[in-house]
Amino acid sequence: MLGEDLTSSAATVWKMNTILKYMMIFIVTCFVGVIVFYQTSIQSGTNVAFMETPSLKQCMQKSKNSKTLKFRENHGCLEILANSDICQDGLLVPKLVHYIFLGKTNFSFFFLLSVLSSYRILKPGFIFVHTDTTIEGKWWDHLLDLVPNIVIIETDKVTQVFDRPVAIVQHQADVMRIQILLKFGGIYMDSDELALKSFDPLRIYPITMGHCRADALGVQVIIASKHSKFLKIWYLTYKTFTDKSWANNSQYMPYKLSLILPELIHKERMGSFAGFRGGVTDFFTKTKDWSKSYGLHLYIRLQKVQTSSPEHIKTLKSTYGEIARFIYYREKKIIS
């Protein structure tokens, strides 16, 4: 009987040890798999809700052969980047620039100049490019060689706001730029807006916008803290949004609000961001003083000149020519 009990006990111990052995193998295999998945997800931009918060160093790891960081729009790394010391320097508005590209995009040299001007003149920690498409083309490829801190954010375009349909792409971008600034804060730039001098003097205000008309504020540049009360109130006015009304919510509404709540917004004069006195085509045909302006909106869709290049701007005698050389070649004078 004693021998049988010992044999039975030994068999039980052997079974338990075998079970524990395979359990340990399973646990180790799962742990290694999770670590590999986690590292891959950080690089690919996959959301990993069940993992601990990644570090800034992990978030800044680029995928192999990639010149940019890339994440889905709700990835946790985006707020880590935006809230890091790279973007936060003590001013109300972070050193973070945003662009939006929706639908098929013909990425032109004008767009390259815009992003390059943001990088060289505004000196942001990161440039967030929010897009629902894959941006391609020779000028995009060239831009990636010139600007190392671009972050691609794969997003879905807005199709409704407060249950109201938004079908026109320009209106979709109008809504998205407010939503983006409410989430991250920073500087929104239109893709054909050229930065001419530092916006730092304006980053001390909760929000800054410039006049595009006497009775309207332009949205080609918005400099805002994510805590801006004006921005939050403005967004709530989209509860009455309709696609049929062009620029009502985006330009006329913030101007009306600025009259009611002047203490919540800093407004810049007409020529600060939108352009100069005269027609919008004057940028390409005349030379005007731009030393007092923060930026220039090219209004590309209204121009006869639809293409440009590094060679084209070398000898161009116009405001655009001077500014383009200043941004691209760091030289305003004609290059022979």
Results as ranks from 00 to 15, higher is better:
F37M: 11
F162H: 12
W140H: 06
I207L: 08
I121D: 09
D145F: 05
K123W: 08
S118I: 01
R325Q: 03
G90L: 15
K286S: 08
K226P: 04
T240S: 13
S225G: 11
A11V: 13
K314Y: 12
F37C: 12
L264H: 02
S41G: 11
N106L: 13
C212F: 02
T133A: 13
K232Q: 14
E331K: 15
L298C: 09
Y99A: 13
A49S: 13
M16C: 11
T133C: 15
E4K: 14
E331F: 12
I334C: 14
Q58A: 07
H266V: 09
T68F: 03
H130D: 08
S245K: 15
M24S: 08
L91C: 12
G137N: 05
P148E: 03
L296A: 11
I222E: 00
I153H: 01
I42A: 07
L231T: 05
I327P: 03
S84E: 09
H227P: 04
M23Y: 11
I42S: 05
L181K: 01
Y238S: 07
F241V: 05
K57S: 15
N149Q: 05
H98T: 14
G125N: 07
P54M: 02
N74G: 07
Q172R: 10
G33E: 01
L298A: 10
S9E: 10
P254L: 02
I207P: 00
Y119I: 08
I178H: 02
E136K: 11
K256L: 09
I180Q: 02
A10I: 14
K267I: 15
F273C: 10
S8T: 13
T40D: 10
K239A: 15
I323Y: 00
S191T: 15
K332W: 10
F326C: 06
K70Y: 09
E193G: 12
F111C: 14
G271L: 05
R301H: 09
E311R: 12
T105W: 03
D190N: 02
K62S: 03
T315W: 03
K256C: 10
E4L: 13
I313S: 05
V97H: 02
F162V: 12
D200Q: 08
K286T: 07
Q172K: 10
L96Y: 05
F162Y: 15
Q306A: 14
E79A: 12
P310Y: 04
K232N: 15
L202H: 02
V147S: 03
T12Q: 07
Y320S: 07
Q220D: 13
E331W: 11
D145Y: 04
I223G: 00
S63P: 10
F184H: 01
I207Y: 04
V151S: 07
T133E: 14
W234Q: 00
D282I: 04
I168F: 15
G295S: 08
D85E: 15
Y299T: 04
I180N: 01
K239P: 11
I25M: 12
K104L: 10
V48R: 01
S308P: 02
V219Y: 01
S272N: 05
M270K: 15
G125I: 09
F184S: 00
S250E: 06
L217F: 03
M1F: 09
N149D: 04
